[in-house]
Structure formats: structure tokens, C-alpha cells
């Protein structure tokens, strides 16, 4: 065998031609206001879990909306369901509900 000493990197791009948006569309159908997120980050700023772990609620739900589901269920498990994010959301998104919805659609809720 040839010892190459490297592997061919896989593309990092979010490829919307290949991503299956089926689950994302199902989530948005149940909670269309999630699309109204303006990415202000107040949910993440106030997040009990996000201040102590790498959990970034805003980023994860944005990725889910693009059809990037890998690891999203596990990320949502970090949520402590305190509900502060819902309190601060200026767009009135039921963020706590989004956590549960993503878990429900992506994993064994």
C-alpha cells in the first residue's frame, strides 16, 4: 500500500443541493415563527447551559434549518430547559419549544 501521509479533505460547505430539508421543513411547518429569528443571539447570551458548555442554541437551530442535522440532537440535550431564552426572545419565538421539537424530530424524544 502507498503511504500517503494525508487524506483528501471532505468539503465543509453546507451543500443545499445535497442536504435533505425534509425534517427542517417539518419543524418549520409546526413552528413557522422560528424562521423569523433575526439571529440577535440573546437566547445564547442568556443560556444557562451555553455559558458553561459549547452549546449554542442559535447556531444549532440555524444549522437544522439548513438541513444540517448531524449532532443537533446531542447538542439540544445540553439544554437545561430553564426557559430564560424564551423570555428574552424579541421575536417571541417559543425557543424552549424549539429545543423539544428538534429533539422530537431528530431523536428518540
Amino acid at each position: 500500500m502507498i503511504q500517503w501521509g494525508f487524506n483528501i479533505n471532505q468539503p465543509r460547505a453546507i451543500n443545499l443541493d445535497k442536504n435533505d430539508r425534509l425534517v427542517a421543513d417539518r419543524i418549520l411547518e409546526q413552528m413557522p415563527e422560528l424562521e423569523a429569528c433575526i439571529a440577535c443571539g440573546s437566547c445564547t447570551a442568556t443560556c444557562t447551559a451555553g455559558n458553561l458548555t459549547s452549546f449554542n442554541f442559535r447556531k444549532v437551530h440555524t444549522l437544522v434549518r439548513r438541513g444540517e442535522y448531524k449532532g443537533a440532537y446531542e447538542e439540544m440535550n445540553k439544554c437545561m430547559l430553564c426557559g430564560k431564552c424564551r423570555l428574552v426572545c424579541p421575536r417571541g419565538i417559543n425557543t424552549r419549544g424549539v429545543v423539544l421539537l428538534i429533539k422530537q424530530e431528530l431523536g428518540d424524544y
Partner: peptide
Amino acid sequence: VQANRGYSVANSQK
């Protein structure tokens, strides 16, 4: 650098 060739070749592959 040999260890970096993975993303050199990936660009040609693209």
C-alpha cells in the same frame, strides 16, 4: 507540508 496536502488535493478534486 505533507500533512496539509489533503486540502490541496481536495481543491483539484472539486
